[in-house]
Design a protein around this nucleic acid. Structure first.
Lengths: 239, 239
DNA sequence: CGCTGGATTGACTCGGATCAAGTCGAGTGG
DNA sequence: CCACTCGACTTGATCCGAGTCAATCCAGCG
């Protein structure tokens, strides 16, 4: 009955069986999408909240020049903004990266759920705060880290997030992200990403190949990235 | 009785006199701070919600190397994250830029306020969504805009935000941001910011001097920046 | 088996950082 | 009132990280 979404939220607050059941029910109506399918586009009127059950997606914006900026990666268990329905239109698009199973929860249902079950509300708010912290980390990366640090930092983030939801193997993670996509996320070119990845591979830090990431020397990557895991808030306030 | 904070929220939802009074009461306990005073630091346990009544502040992070990244500018009327108290520690710091009058609202009081008055909750959520949209715009700027576009884009944003709360003159805005601060916000060096500002001045687009910004040719700036005001969500869903 | 999109590598260019001197303006104290 | 000081602002010279352009390679697939 539980799914990736309930699993993830359980990491943020103590949810009882009732909570989990309510969440699982709410996210039971799901649809399968192909890769590269826009779930919603910039300018659209926001609809229900999306929940990624399986597969990856990303938020992105397209500039007048045609270049793209990826704003966030969504992995299984991730949800998009809670109150998004309050706005008149989306300021960015969301697209699947891989084939994906996505649940939707209508705004009224979500509101009702959060009102009836404080634990769920709490978990959702924490999840949202972490997403915000992640955006801040991205801003910091783009502004003040070199390209190598930026790549290493993103890999640390994705690895940790994936591990939190039990998606990782032994220092390995299945990462279905093309170098082009990574370039659009990190504000660099695919050519340069490629060189950076090569360098990191030669240094024996990590190897990204064929849709999977191998962390070869965890300490080295963390050092290169200057990674602090604080913003992912894995140690939560007890209260 | 109203203040900058209530004024701003009134722009997001129809608040009745009772709402405004409740908000004004909640934000009545304020303190004056000097410029460059940390309201809260990365690693601190989050406390009450901060509300800027007068003066400017910024969110920022400091990297191991000592460089700083500014994550957001807070102007009068802005509040920091609603549910921040749910987290164990801050993932960034907040510092005043100018002397500032800041109100604090305890978490329990905020929760009660939002539960009793749905209009306030709604306005606060919209405000938060806009802050998130702003972060996404920043990520986009840092990743995919040239330094000139980036500077122009930030100026457009600040001008519009300031205008929404009635802080602007005739195509003029009092901007107490040093070039060093702008550099830390835009991920560039103070030297380079200086050259970009000069170029924009020579082009007759805008002039930033002595703490005040003059928009000389609004259309030119918007064109240079590739600015779309969608993310500030000034036209809200009616419902 | 050829097509197509991603990955890889090389040569060259350029935007923005770095380094280094000033200049200017607002306080501060004698 | 003036000299001193300390930031912030300006400007010039130089360097380098990363973009651009252009081939090629490679794997999956219709």
């Amino acid at each position: 009955m539980a799914n990736r979404f309930t699993d993830k939220l359980c990491g943020f607050a103590t949810l009882d069986a009732e909570d989990v059941k309510a969440l699982a029910d709410a996210s039971s109506r799901s649809r399968q999408y192909t890769a590269r399918h826009d779930l919603i586009r910039e300018g659209d009127r926001p609809g229900p909240v999306f929940i990624m059950l399986e597969g990856w997606a990303c938020r992105y914006k397209v500039l007048p020049s045609g270049t793209r900026q990826v704003l966030a990666f969504l992995m299984p268990g991730d949800a998009c903004d809670l109150h998004i329905g309050l706005l008149a239109e989306m300021d960015h698009s969301i697209q699947t990266i891989t084939p994906a199973r996505v649940a939707t929860i209508e705004r009224v249902e979500m509101d009702a759920l959060m009102e009836r079950r404080p634990g769920i509300a709490r978990a959702m708010y924490i999840s949202q705060l972490i997403d915000e912290g992640t955006m801040r980390a991205w801003i910091t990366s783009m502004g003040r880290r070199t390209s190598t640090e930026r790549v290493a930092h993103l890999m640390c983030e994705l690895y940790l997030r994936a591990r939190n939801i039990g998606l990782t193997g032994e220092d390995t993670l299945s990462l279905p992200l093309s170098q082009i996509l990574l370039a659009d996320a990190l504000g660099m070119t695919a050519v340069h990403i490629n060189r950076v990845l090569k360098e990191l591979r030669l240094q024996g830090a990590m190897a990204l190949r064929r849709g999977s990431l191998d962390i070869i020397d965890p300490e080295m990557i963390v050092r290169i990235a200057g990674f602090g895991d604080g913003y992912l808030h894995r140690h939560l306030r007890i209260a």
